[in-house]
């Protein structure tokens, strides 16, 4: 049996990817539409982009969202990397089952429940809702994603290198900084990117945990979308999609090149006598 595509395979790939990409492509195309009506094409125009730029509410929300995403993903990466390290390198300790439960549970928890429970918590400790509470909420769910990403990298990583460093007199802290961290760096960066996009994207949890003055971009988009499709929102969405797509593509190409280089070096090392 030959390896290759039958007409059915090709058709399902083409239709499948059309289904995945056509809606976003249409959204991008219609953000350049002169007309306010979605279905009428009235010529190319960038006026919705300038209108978006001049919409102060929208720009404020975008600024808040980027601030939250940056702070939250940075904290989440630190906490998540520690958590991944604890799960793979710390052996048994009391309360380990609870710990791994608390890492995995947020991944499957419906957003409405996470949002509601955090809000009730913030009310109970009478913490004023706003930038800080949204950031705390985002750190909490993103750190679990980081932990899982870092953990899967640490599992495949040869422990004997770390042991060798410690045998040569490295302290555990120094071993982590000089040996482990450089090796798991791609996973840490991927975790940061993932947290950043998760935070950028979140509507439900932010709606529960935010307060006056800290409206995020998804909340703004959501409230406008409920009133109807507008080209201005199309323009915002196009920019967001463009940013995320560029970031992810660059990151994955860089990691792929590194991987290929490493493979080549390994092969060269094995070939050498």
């Amino acid at each position: 049996m030959r390896q290759g595509l039958t007409w059915f395979n090709s058709a399902s790939l083409i239709l499948g990817f059309l289904f995945l990409y056509l809606p976003i492509a249409l959204l991008v195309i219609y953000s350049f539409n002169e007309s306010r009506l979605v279905t009428v094409w009235a010529g190319f125009s960038t006026k919705w982009y300038s209108e978006m730029w001049n919409n102060e509410g929208l720009m404020n929300a975008a600024w808040v969202t980027f601030k939250v995403a940056f702070v939250a993903s940075t904290f989440a990466t630190v906490l998540g990397t520690l958590a991944g390290l604890i799960m793979t390198r710390f052996g048994p300790f009391r309360g380990r089952t609870l710990f791994s439960g608390m890492i995995y549970a947020p991944l499957v928890m419906p957003e409405v429940i996470t949002g509601l429970s955090l809000l009730l918590m913030f009310v109970a400790i009478s913490l004023d809702r706003g930038f800080v509470t949204v950031t705390i909420a985002h750190i909490t769910f993103s750190m679990c994603y980081v932990a899982v990403v870092v953990q899967s990298r640490l599992i495949t990583f040869d422990r004997s290198i770390e042991e060798a460093a410690m045998d040569l007199g490295c302290t555990p802290g120094r071993t982590f900084l000089q040996i482990t961290l450089p090796v798991i760096a791609p996973a840490v960066v991927a975790g940061w990117l993932l947290s950043f996009t998760l935070s950028l994207d979140d509507l439900v949890i932010a709606s529960f945990t935010t307060g006056p003055g800290a409206t995020t971009l998804p909340m703004k988009i959501y409230s406008q979308v409920r009133l109807g499709v507008t080209p201005e929102i199309n323009a915002v969405c196009t920019i967001l999609v463009g940013l995320v797509a560029t970031g992810v593509l660059v990151a994955s190409l860089v990691t792929r090149r590194q991987e290929m280089q490493r493979e080549r070096e390994e092969r060269a090392a094995q070939a050498a006598p």
């Binding site: 959204l27 998804p218 988009i221």
Partner: peptide, 9 residues
């Protein structure tokens, strides 16, 4: 890419 945007599309 954003979940909200994909639903909105």
């Amino acid at each position: 890419t954003s979940f909200l945007i994909r639903v909105y599309a």
